[in-house]
């Protein structure tokens, strides 16, 4: 269910990566509202993480309003639509920014990028 890859040398603290992972799963639709998240222990075992790290991630997710923690029964996906939208927007923007940084570091020019964008989006539209 989870496509999981923790990058041990990424600048992000591990718990942030876990949070990111969960968000990706929710945004992609693989995790829907009402789905149960794996228990802390299970996720820790799968990812080979310290359970405290996973606990911290879940705690933060709950604080951000992405998931809900119910005593005795675990953690559940419960994201309000508005939240989901803002999340999606934020993440897409992050991805985009990252793409742009990479592109510029390869020496891409603004014009090339615009052309490239248009072409791919047209293709997308055609293919849908």
């Amino acid at each position: 269910m989870f496509r999981l890859n923790i990058d041990f040398s990424s600048p992000l603290p591990i718990y942030q990566q876990v949070i990111h992972l969960v968000k990706m799963e929710i945004l992609s639709g693989r995790l829907k509202n009402g789905d149960r998240l794996p228990p802390i222990r299970e996720l820790a075992k799968i990812l080979k993480l310290n359970p405290n790290t996973v606990a911290k991630a879940y705690y933060t997710l709950e604080a951000e309003g992405i998931i809900e923690s119910k005593r005795g029964s675990g953690n559940w996906v419960h994201t309000k639509k508005a939240k989901l939208d803002s999340l999606r927007k934020g993440m897409i923007e992050d991805e985009f920014r990252t793409f742009l940084e990479s592109a510029f570091s390869l020496g891409a020019k603004k014009e090339d990028l615009k052309k490239l964008m248009a072409r791919y989006l047209n293709d997308e539209q055609t293919n849908r």
Binding site: I40, L47, K48, N50, P51
Partner: peptide
Amino acid sequence: ISQLQTTVIMVNHTFSEIEKI
């Protein structure tokens, strides 16, 4: 760790999978 909050102390100098424990 998750059930008993055990304090775990390991001696190692290779890390690989245990890196994030």
